[in-house]
Design a protein around this nucleic acid. Structure first.
Length: 666
RNA sequence: GGGCCGGUAGUCGAGCCAGGACCAAGACGGCGGCCUGCGGAGCCGCAAAUCGUGGGUUCGAAUCCCACCCGGCCCGCCA
């Protein structure tokens, strides 16, 4: 029990944070005395905000720019103020983690850390807390739902969506580690047109047993069907236009659209000739495919048994494929929510009633619209939501004129559903949905759920374009997540083969699997989520510096040394680790709690990713410069070994947070 | 037409919200070194940036404000 409680306490220790706190106290004390001595009215200053990281270690480990601010009030030179403050500082509080305070041109106050002390604090904490080191628990844990991926179950998950999955999953891991209760949800958009088209095509084919991976098979059915339907529709429109003597402009536009789809059809035909010909034949015999599809949607919304069975069956097949793919990248969901349930349970209808009663919805020839702009003004949301005065919030159409609901409406109902359990809802969704997400937020607010609205967070994922071109699921132009993982695996396998040909093949496969999956995750996570990125194979599959293999390699090196040295007792002091590379590594380890906390609270997995890289880098430097197993000085050897073990522990923790799987051999 | 987001070496990309030592991190690519020691997927060094442009605020601007240019995205009875 005692051991456990020290472990828990050690998990809370933030060594660099303590150093920072001490700098703050010293500075606060010095400033208070200076205020007293000068007898001038000196302003209150937020000391912590003046502390920053110096550009390099010759300036110490933290620096304050407070003197610049004070110099103005005192009508003195910043350098003079800095040296006065450092004199005062030396008169006051005892230094523990702080080694020295020095004024420096043009007026900084530089704090050096007492490295042996910081090292002991850090390495002891890591030793005691082990895998929990740095995972500082939030003071007020929350129930959080992270919704992510939520791809239409009409085609396989492509690399664009995978970015969404990887960020969502990592976010959930980080928040869980921070002590929150986290649930990941997948929202199945089964009431939309895409799914209906897919089901329609599948039914036409006579509901065959899928060959190969289910989501790929159904994805082909969807692409081919929707293309054929699109061509059919455009042909009808063109005929109508010609009959009614429409303007040339309209005719040209439709002709262009038609040509485009014919081009897509040719592509699909060459890829899947058999399925294409079969469906083409079947669709051409249909009286009005578009109408049949709309009918399917209406029947499904009503919950008609036969349609329900069909659509659920096809959707399930695709979802099974999703799960299989996602499992390869260590992504799983706690809950799968069907959009149709929002309709069948009456949630959408109830929501519509409430919105109509709000006085902010208006009826336009049967179709209901929400005046989001007015809602913003009525509730003073412009300021609360940080919207600029020029930002115009477009109205939101809630229903078609036949009364059926639209996607955003169902999403509002779904959001309310999530808040029945969650205190915070994070939606990991593309940036292009920014406006739609804002409208959901506004709707939640105007219904009186103000706290919920404020805890409704859109985590935007920047667009991923494929070697310069935008991907199109409808046109069947995309690279699937599976293909990416496959390719990564092949490349990793080659590398493993090169280096560890002695391993049995199944071990090589396992290693290559871990390395490739981690490389893919890392490549996505290392660039900030909201940035749009151009997907380039060679960059996504980089195995050198700034990559998961680079981190894995550091880990492998720690294992090599520790295995060679066997069991050892943790030393009581760390006074011999004086090499710059050793000190840099210690400092890096001491900062982990701070980085983790920031990354969790600011919802920024990239921060941790960059940290992982830096830690690996620091370790590689240390490894090259310091001998470990063959030093004669046993004390030094022990201290270095301890540093290796601490590095291994933290590398493992960070990798776990990022969802990387480290291979013990590479 | 309106709005939102971005523009940092040849390329990719931190830093920007909370202005300070920025003659700007890191990586890829280029050039040159390092294996008789713990695995070279590593380490060390060199070259490479008008921080989109112009103005402003400030003792101080990549960072804040204004204008403009370029790129992306959004403004559907699609999802």
């Amino acid at each position: 029990m005692a051991v456990r409680s020290t472990g828990i306490q050690a998990a809370r220790i933030d060594p660099f944070g303590l150093f920072k706190k001490e700098c703050e106290n010293i500075l606060a004390g010095a400033y208070a005395r200076l205020r007293h001595d000068k007898g001038v009215a000196l302003p209150k200053i937020d000391i912590a905000s003046t502390l920053e990281d110096p550009p390099n270690e010759e300036f110490g480990h933290l620096a304050s720019s407070i003197s610049f601010e004070l110099a103005r009030v005192l009508k003195s030179k910043p350098m003079k103020v800095a040296s006065d403050l450092s004199d005062e500082a030396r008169k006051g509080e005892k230094f523990e983690l702080v080694e020295s305070v020095q004024p420096a041109e043009p007026g900084y106050l530089n704090f050096k850390a007492n490295l042996p002390h910081l090292a002991r604090l850090t390495l002891d904490a890591i030793g005691k807390a082990g895998p929990n080191y740095g995972l500082v628990i939030a003071s007020t844990p929350q129930r959080i739902i992270v919704e992510h991926t939520s791809a239409n179950p009409a085609r396989p998950i492509h690399i664009g969506t995978s970015k969404n999955s990887i960020f969502g999953d990592t976010l959930a891991r980080i928040l869980k580690a921070r002590g929150h209760m986290v649930q990941t949800h997948f929202y199945i958009d089964d009431t939309g047109r895409q799914v209906a088209q897919m089901a329609y095509g599948y039914k036409l084919l006579g509901e065959p047993a899928p060959s190969g991976k289910t989501d790929e098979f159904i994805g082909r059915v969807y692409s081919v069907t929707s293309t054929l339907v699109e061509i059919d529709e455009n042909k009808r429109r063109l005929a109508l236009l010609k009959k009614t003597n429409a303007s040339d402009l309209d005719i040209v536009a439709v002709t262009k659209e038609l040509d485009e789809w014919v081009g897509v059809a040719e592509e699909l035909h060459s890829k899947y000739p058999e399925m294409f010909d079969a469906l083409s034949e079947l669709v051409s015999k249909e009286e009005d495919p578009q109408k049949s599809i709309s009918q399917l949607i209406r029947r499904y919304e009503k919950g008609e048994q036969e349609t329900k069975t069909l659509i659920r069956r096809v959707s399930q097949m695709v979802l099974a494929g999703f799960e299989e793919t996602l499992r390869r990248a260590r992504i799983h969901f706690d809950q799968w929510d069907w959009e149709s349930e929002m309709l069948w349970t009456g949630r959408v209808a109830e929501l519509l009633d409430r919105l109509k009663e709000s006085g902010l919805a208006r009826n336009r020839s049967g179709s209901w619209q929400l005046d989001a702009e007015k809602a913003v003004e009525d509730f003073g949301l412009r300021e609360k939501l940080g919207l600029s005065p020029t930002f115009e919030v477009a109205p939101l159409t809630l229903t078609r004129s036949d009364g059926t609901s639209l996607y955003p409406t169902r999403d509002i109902a779904y959001t309310m559903y999530k808040f029945e359990w969650a205190e915070r809802v994070i939606n990991v969704i593309g940036v292009e949905q920014t406006l739609a997400q804002l409208q959901v937020k506004i709707a939640v607010y105007l219904l009186g759920h103000r706290k919920e609205a404020m805890n409704f967070i859109h985590f935007p994922i920047g667009l991923l374009v494929l070697e310069g071109q935008r991907m199109s699921a409808r046109k069947g132009r995309y690279v699937t997540f599976d293909q990416l993982l496959d390719e990564a695996f092949l490349r990793a396998k080659q590398e493993v083969e090169k280096r560890s040909s002695d391993l049995p093949d199944e071990v090589k496969d396992r290693v290559a699997k871990r390395i490739s999956m981690s490389a893919v995750r890392y490549a996505m996570l290392s660039v900030e989520a909201s940035k749009s990125t151009n997907f380039v194979w060679d960059r996504a599959l980089n195995f050198e510096a700034n990559s998961a293999p680079f981190i894995n390699y550091a880990y492998t090196r720690t294992l090599g040394i520790l295995k060679k040295l066997g069991k050892f007792d943790r030393p009581g002091s760390f006074d011999k680790l004086n090499e710059p590379a050793e000190q840099n590594l210690i400092l890096c380890l001491s900062r982990f709690p701070e980085i983790f906390t920031k990354s969790a609270d600011e919802l920024n997995p990239t921060l941790l990713c960059l940290y992982a890289n830096q830690l690996a880098q620091r370790f590689h430097e240390f490894y090259e410069k310091s001998d470990i197993s063959h030093v004669a000085d046993t004390k030094l050897k022990l201290q270095r070994t301890s540093l290796v073990e601490a590095s291994r522990t933290v590398l493992q923790t960070v990798a776990g947070l990022l969802g990387l799987e480290l291979a013990e051999r590479m």
